[in-house]
């Protein structure tokens, strides 16, 4: 296959950036999208040019490092597929492919396709946990968790923190990310004591970090590589109202 890649190049956080066109030839449909960038980078390095900087690590779709907007869609054209799991068989010979970093004010560009997502860590550290210091735990079977509850918690806990939801949202909202953690922890019996403080604190941090509000566009859930459902956002709103009514604000 032969492809034309138009990639966002930006030397540093304060520098201007632009789309730069590269041709890649003789690539195989079995290659992953990141392997195409590997091939391009080796060529650039040998030519004495700067390779394209991009985040990646596990290349199995689970660490959440890779983050590219491909042809206008976070993680590209395949549903529930991270950039690293996207393969060239999803494209056609001769395609022109645009590759950009996540675009959202709370995710500033560091270099090329690398952005700073530390705002997500701050949302989690403001309440996305169950207080359970090591050594304090009761016997695992002392609290039963009905299977549907465990499944709901699991479905939301599969979030990989990649940020595609924010990149997809016209408002740059982090509602789906925050909602997934609230749904995971607030649905479990172990999460009940901090149920109200958790949601209030996480939402406050989300707002303080500069993420936009939710207008129920639904782009986030469509872009989510782990299929976190949009209904989690409705749940977040319910949890938030519940906490306000409970007078914990």
């Amino acid at each position: 296959m032969n492809l034309t890649l138009r990639i966002w190049r930006q030397p540093g956080p304060d520098a201007g950036g632009s789309m730069v066109t590269y041709q890649v030839s003789d690539v195989s449909p079995d290659m992953s999208f990141l392997e195409v960038l590997d091939v391009l980078n080796e060529r650039l390095i040998r030519a004495g040019e700067q390779p394209v900087a991009f985040d990646h690590d596990c290349r199995e779709g689970i660490c959440g490092s890779c983050a590219m907007v491909i042809n206008g869609r976070p993680h590209g054209p395949e549903q529930t597929t991270t950039t690293c799991q996207l393969h060239l068989r999803s494209f056609r010979d001769g395609d022109v492919i645009d590759v950009e970093p996540w675009r959202a004010r709370p995710f500033p560009v560091i270099k090329d396709l690398v952005v700073d997502r530390s705002a997500f860590d701050r949302i989690i550290s403001s309440g996305g946990y169950i207080t359970s210091p090591t050594g304090s735990a009761p016997e695992a079977h002392s609290i039963l968790v009905p299977k549907p509850v465990a499944d709901l918690a699991f479905e939301n806990a599969t979030c990989i923190g990649c940020g595609a939801c924010v990149a997809a949202c016209p408002n740059g909202s982090a509602m789906l990310f925050t909602a997934a953690k609230v749904a995971h922890l607030n649905s479990l019996p172990q999460g009940q004591p901090e149920r109200e403080s958790r949601v209030l604190s996480m939402v406050a941090t989300m707002d303080a970090e500069g993420f936009g509000g939710c207008t129920n566009t639904g782009e986030c859930a469509a872009a989510c590589p782990k299929g976190i459902p949009l209904s989690s956002i409705a749940n977040l709103n319910r949890e938030y109202l519940h906490a306000l009514r409970a007078g914990r604000a």
Binding site: S132, A137, P138, A140, H141, L144, V145
Partner: peptide
């Protein structure tokens, strides 16, 4: 055995049976 207790207390959503057991 303590690890499983610790992780369950943290909210790790291990697979469960219909009766609620791990």
């Amino acid at each position: 055995v303590e690890i499983i207790d610790q992780c369950v207390a943290q909210g790790v959503p291990f697979a469960r049976e219909y009766g609620g057991l791990l």
